[in-house]
Simulated assay, not measured.
Amino acid sequence: MSLGRETLPDRRTVGVVLAALLLVVAVVAGGAGLYFAVGLGPDEAAVSAVESSEDVTVERLDGATVVRSGPVTAETTGLVYYPGGRVNHESYVPTAAEMVAGRDVAVVIVDMPLNLAVLGPNRADGAREAFPAIESWAVGGHSLGGAMACRYAADNADELNGLVLHASYCDRDVSESGLRVLSVLGAADGVLDAERERESRANLPPETRVVELDGVNHAGFGAYGPQRGDRPVATEPAAMRERVGNATGAWLAG
């Protein structure tokens, strides 16, 4: 039985179909890229309040924002901070300001490709190189940023002193790394997988300090507005950031 010419698509038809498929893929990819690139936050008013403070200095470098309370010296403790997934890195300037206020601490908040730390896992290298005077470094981050900071710490433990997890957990074993580790959690966090976080504590050193803050949800770690799936709280955003920042800053300075 002959198929006949009419049942076979000609080259022009195939070309049109392929072009349409490529266009759809391009639109989807472009939309996804735009979705992540736009990011959440920052709360401009909260950032401006920090910039106008006489107690804190905000310095913008290529690919990072630095928050410190004084000059950077060999005595300064440095923290390289990775932002949460799809969150603009400047959203953490107000929280960092709480960490450094009255303390010899400098926080380098790293800008990530498409606001995803998974696309820039080793950017702590450049952040540390920008401040060669600092001898004591910790890495940390919020949510996805914390998980990626843990991976960086696992690969560079001999060059670091600490790891800070904000509403996050480690999927790499650093239990015998010699690192000091702080894990700060929000009691009202509706985004973090609490069961996964608790199970993952086995990856942390036995001396890890775990702090759970009442009245703090997942979005309370930064200044970028409410987050889908999170729990509502009565605590003001600035108060949540103050609690997170003070708990972290005291640990870093200690």
Rank of each mutant, 00 (worst) to 15 (best):
67 V>H: 07
24 V>F: 04
153 A>W: 04
223 A>E: 06
112 M>L: 08
166 H>L: 15
113 P>F: 10
194 A>K: 13
202 A>N: 03
116 L>I: 12
42 P>G: 05
17 V>Q: 02
165 L>E: 10
203 N>C: 07
27 V>L: 15
138 A>Q: 01
2 S>D: 11
242 E>W: 01
44 E>M: 02
205 P>E: 12
18 L>W: 02
49 A>I: 04
170 C>P: 06
158 D>R: 14
184 V>K: 02
226 P>W: 00
51 E>I: 07
142 H>R: 05
109 I>Y: 02
13 T>I: 01
191 V>T: 11
67 V>N: 08
177 S>Q: 10
56 V>H: 06
253 A>S: 15
3 L>N: 05
15 G>H: 01
121 P>W: 08
250 A>M: 04
235 T>R: 12
78 G>Q: 07
159 E>F: 01
196 R>L: 13
135 E>G: 13
33 G>C: 02
50 V>Y: 03
220 G>L: 08
62 D>F: 03
152 Y>H: 05
111 D>Q: 13
46 A>M: 06
159 E>P: 00
29 A>G: 14
174 V>N: 08
247 A>F: 04
194 A>N: 04
131 F>C: 00
203 N>K: 08
184 V>C: 09
89 H>S: 10
39 G>T: 08
185 L>G: 01
16 V>L: 09
173 D>E: 13
164 V>P: 04
253 A>N: 14
156 N>R: 12
234 A>G: 15
219 A>V: 07
18 L>K: 02
233 V>K: 11
139 V>Q: 03
177 S>R: 12
237 P>F: 09
175 S>I: 09
100 V>D: 13
97 A>D: 06
70 G>L: 01
30 G>Q: 07
209 R>A: 14
245 G>I: 12
185 L>M: 14
216 V>N: 11
43 D>S: 13
45 A>K: 13
83 P>Y: 08
61 L>D: 14
206 P>N: 10
62 D>V: 08
118 V>S: 15
37 A>F: 02
109 I>K: 01
224 Y>N: 06
33 G>D: 01
166 H>A: 11
230 D>L: 05
78 G>H: 06
102 G>R: 12
33 G>I: 01
213 L>R: 11
40 L>H: 13
155 D>I: 00
240 M>G: 06
167 A>Y: 05
162 G>Y: 10
208 T>E: 11
220 G>D: 09
87 V>F: 08
79 L>H: 05
18 L>I: 10
